[in-house]
Design a binder for these strands. Structure first.
Lengths: 147, 147
DNA sequence: CCCTTTATTTGAATTATTCAAAAATAGAGA
DNA sequence: TCTCTATTTTTGAATAATTCAAATAAAGGG
């Protein structure tokens, strides 16, 4: 079977994570790379095209395993099923339309930095400050009030 | 029926929001006031105590109506069912334990509604910058690695 | 007090996700 | 290369959170 550079890279990622190299996992990694913020359903139907007979449970398994190994980031915006992305380890955030769910990556918030440091840590060991910007996308600004 | 000051206040809130004044709605407001971050289940069982026969659907209706009227804020942290709180209109955030789900309010150091500005607004009309601090609470720092 | 609108109950469905046992397969070692 | 075992995937079913819809009950303006 032909191996693209990306494929070779994905194999190394899986191996380094201690996960076996399977077609589903390689395809899932590629898919999320190509379609950031993909939902489980979307990933599921794409996996089915490449690997006939793929089950939804296997899709959840694969995504959970990849997430557990730190190869995928999972985001769960309010009112939406889980989404997955490859950009991990950086400090990027998300901008979501309340009306249609359109989602953009936001490289980093600018300005009022104090918001990214809690005023009282309650003695927690912090590992993430997750920021979601909510609003209305340009399209929904004009269509929201329609009948 | 006796009306406490809080009760009177809640009645005014409902009336001003154009919502009819019902026992369930008054109790739900009181309950969330007394128990910030309460889950639907928690609110449901408490409503049942005060109003025998209350259904889970009515609980969802009441909470959705109050939320729609802007009287309750709904938060939906990843991996948790929806939670409700009375603190609305201020710019406070949340600190959540990844292990046990313990949740604290975090007062934002900076005042206004979206306390942060995205690096690129994508022409969205923003109404909220939601920040969730994730970490491990003191208790889970010691118990997480146990068998 | 009646009537109409709005709430709530009753009963069922949907969506997102997980659990568990059986069958298949990756890949380390003989 | 072949075999064996642990891991992965399928198959089948269950659960949790939430919503939908029709029938009944209650709020509150006239």
């Amino acid at each position: 079977m032909p191996t693209t550079p990306a494929d070779t890279d994905s194999r190394a990622l899986l191996r380094d994570a201690g996960l076996r190299i399977t077609g589903l996992r390689l395809s899932a990694l590629d898919l999320v790379e190509a379609h950031p913020h993909a939902t489980v359903d979307h990933i599921f139907s794409n996996l089915q095209m490449k690997h006939a007979g793929t089950s939804i449970q296997a899709t959840y398994n694969v995504l959970n395993d990849l997430h557990g190994a730190g190869l995928l980031r999972r985001i769960e915006p309010a009112g939406s099923p889980a989404r997955f992305e490859r950009r991990i380890g950086d400090n990027h955030h998300h901008l979501i339309c309340r009306s249609c769910g359109e989602l953009h990556d936001i490289d980093c918030a600018v300005g009022e930095a104090p918001c990214l440091v809690p005023s009282d840590s309650h003695d927690f060991i912090l590992d993430e400050a997750e920021v979601v910007f909510w609003g209305l996308c340009p399209k929904c600004q004009t269509t929201t009030t329609n009948p």
